[in-house]
Design a protein around this nucleic acid. Structure first.
Length: 291
DNA sequence: ACCCTCACCTGCACGC
DNA sequence: TGCGTGCAGGTGAGGG
């Protein structure tokens, strides 16, 4: 369920919580979480590794690790190997930071035992989440990551980039905004919200959007992501409160159109509409976002 | 190369 | 109460 703003806050929470910790051992209870790697190979690789940093690429959480040299002789010069544990939360993935005696909750598919006697749990009700171990130098060559569009807050994601991405596509804007290889970071909620802010109809064909509107859309994408990240209720993401937080709750009160079908538009009072587009719900104001 | 549909899962809200 | 249906914020494989 998390889109980029929620992932960003999970990253910040992980960063202040687990940076510098060593993974004493790990336990994978759902093998497909780490497939095609085997659970035992995954655990072997992580054992004894120290977490050096936590970052993000799109909606992927990157837990950067350093594995001390084991055995004799190998790679004697550097003395360590760097790798990244890349985690995608998909719909329901969550991290929890538990004490030794806390009960392991339902749907805990991976457990990381840390050197401070605490446990980092990966919990995922729908089992869509994925983890992969990537060699330090291979990150930008990894399938699933190398195809991602530029980071929305980076220089490369500018109005010119967006215009050119739009020009190449015959799909609807809403569908295109969900494509992480074209525009990075939006999900089903913020795609609708960004289009509402830009006053652009979600069914409009991408290539037919005027340059002026493309600039407006670019602005709206950035502001909707920034506002969601800046929202103080977001910082409530607390890894120690397993059920005290659901990603959506924090932002609901700011939604202008999402899940508001039949309710009045905050701008003009017209009833917000809902339709299915590419199998997903799209919400829009038929007056503010005319074709 | 592009784009669409379906599949992956569990749980919840709803109507009967 | 129970059961069936549809829906959920994300992607990726496979096929046209």
């Amino acid at each position: 369920m998390p889109e980029l703003p929620e992932v960003e806050h999970v990253v910040r929470a992980l960063r202040r919580t687990i940076t510098g910790r060593t993974i004493v051992a790990s336990e994978v209870r759902l093998p497909k979480l780490v497939a095609p790697l085997s659970a035992s190979a995954f655990n072997r690789k992580l054992k004894g590794s120290t977490i050096t940093a936590v970052s993000r690429r799109g909606k992927f959480i990157l837990i950067e690790c350093r594995q001390p040299e084991r055995g004799r002789g190998q790679r004697a010069r550097s003395g360590h190997r760097d790798f990244v544990l890349a985690v995608h939360l998909r719909m329901t993935g969550k991290f929890l930071y538990l004490h030794r005696d806390d009960d392991i909750p339902k749907h805990a598919h991976a457990i990381f035992y840390l050197d401070n006697d605490r446990r980092l749990i990966f919990r995922d009700q729908r089992q869509f989440g994925v983890m992969k171990l990537i060699d330090g130098t291979q990150l930008t060559r990894t399938k699933g990551i190398k195809e991602l569009a530029p980071e929305p807050f980076g220089e490369e994601f500018n109005p010119e980039y967006l215009k050119s991405a739009l020009q190449k596509s015959r799909r609807s804007l809403k569908t295109l905004l969900l494509d992480q290889t074209k525009v990075l970071g939006l999900g089903n909620i913020y795609a609708s919200e960004a289009l509402f802010r830009a006053r652009i109809n979600p069914f409009k064909i991408a290539a037919q959007l005027s340059p002026a509107r493309a600039i407006r859309l670019h602005q709206s994408i950035l502001t909707v992501l920034r506002d969601a990240i800046a929202d103080s209720s977001t910082s409530r993401i607390d890894l120690e409160q397993p059920d005290g937080f659901s990603y959506g709750e924090a932002f609901e009160r700011f939604w202008q159109v999402y899940e508001r079908a039949g309710e009045p538009c905050h701008n003009c009072g017209t009833k917000i509409r809902r339709a299915t587009q590419g199998g997903r719900s799209t919400y829009w104001c038929p007056k503010c976002q005319r074709r």
